[in-house]
């Protein structure tokens, strides 16, 4: 049922990178919650699996010297959701993590895997040879696109990015740390995911042989309030129909600065600059919130069956802004 593959569990990061770089179709095995399903369903090929569970440096969550936070790529979603510093300083990330999947999956899945997971489009995951799998067409464009995107498809691929942690990391200005055959590099969390117009077969900017090793968060700026709101078709074990990640710096009642990312909206965590524009420099009164809610769907390109998201995003954004304004 699974393809035949070579499996290694190196102790050193350099070995892991080397194994991966040598493989024709190498895949990283961390929590495996997404990988095993993809292999079983034949979503992609894999001739080599490199387990990174033996790389002890990739575990752990700790404060950095500058007062920020480093989350090892192998930190489980549960560890992120429950960590006192995450909860205290980056509440939106803790909420996002706690809304992922189900308790079993949160215990097994990792933050690195959550960032690198494959989309959940039912055409991509089914027996449909779609663009993302190297085929000729996006089946969602004319098919059942109930769960598909409002933004950013570029008329190429209409997935929504499934991660609940990524929009929060992006909103919180996190940095993704990567090691590969060429050495180390960092990418801003908001630039980590790949728009389909650039490469429809990739979800991230990772190059062959590269491994996510950690995510770092800058020290929380003064007046930071962050939160995440997720709406789904059922109340657990489900991806976002619509979600909103807020990381706003308040000065008294006024939003001094802020970043707003939507989930369930686009093939990548979707920065909503119209919402940011509507609220920055403003007090979050009813009129501002109403305007911001409207702005959240500015430029949206609804498909035949996902038009409900227009109202849903406005509702979710309005509700979350109201809540964050209250402190």
């Amino acid at each position: 049922m699974l393809p035949n593959f070579a499996y290694s569990r190196p102790r050193k990061l350099t070995d892991a990178v080397a194994h991966l770089a040598d493989a024709k179709n190498g895949r990283v095995h961390a929590g495996g919650t997404d990988l095993i399903g993809c292999l079983r369903d034949g979503i992609f090929k894999a001739d080599t699996l490199v387990s990174i569970s033996g790389l002890t440096d990739l575990h752990g969550i700790e404060e950095t010297g500058d007062g920020g936070l480093r989350i090892g790529a192998l930190a489980t979603i549960t560890q992120v959701a429950d960590h006192p510093l995450v909860k205290e300083r980056y509440a939106g990330l803790a909420q996002g993590a706690s809304e992922v999947a189900s308790p079993q999956l949160r215990n097994q899945g990792t933050i690195g895997g959550n960032l690198c997971q494959k989309p959940r489009c039912w055409y991509y995951r089914g027996e449909f040879h779609c663009l993302r799998k190297g085929g000729g067409a996006c089946f969602a464009a004319e098919g059942d696109n109930t769960f598909h995107c409002l933004f950013g498809s570029d008329d190429v691929c209409h997935i929504t990015h499934p991660s609940d942690t990524a929009p929060n990391l992006a909103a919180l200005n996190a940095t993704v740390h990567i090691t590969g055959p060429e050495g180390k590099r960092t990418v801003a969390a908001d630039a980590f995911h790949m728009p389909p117009s650039v490469d429809v077969q990739a979800e991230t900017v990772l190059r062959p042989g590269e491994i996510v090793t950690a995510v770092t968060l800058p020290p929380p700026p003064k007046g930071l309030r962050s939160s995440y709101r997720k709406v789904r078709a059922r109340r657990s074990w489900d991806f976002a129909l619509a979600g909103v990640a807020l990381a706003l710096q308040f000065d008294g009642d006024t939003v001094r600065n802020g970043r707003v990312f939507l989930s369930g909206a686009a093939p990548v965590p979707w920065r909503s600059q119209p919402v940011e524009k509507a609220i920055i420099g403003k007090k979050l009164d009813d009129a501002t919130i109403k305007k911001a809610a409207k702005a959240s769907v500015e430029g949206a390109m609804p498909l035949a069956k996902n038009g409900y998201k227009i109202g849903l995003f406005q509702g979710a954004v309005a509700e979350e802004l109201t809540k964050i304004a209250a402190g």
């Binding site: 709406v231 789904r232 078709a233 409900y308 998201k309 227009i310 109202g311």
Partner: peptide, 13 residues
């Protein structure tokens, strides 16, 4: 569910 209810909300408006 939120999908079908939001469709109805939109119709109503």
């Amino acid at each position: 569910n939120p999908i079908t209810l939001n469709r109805k909300f939109a119709e109503k408006e």
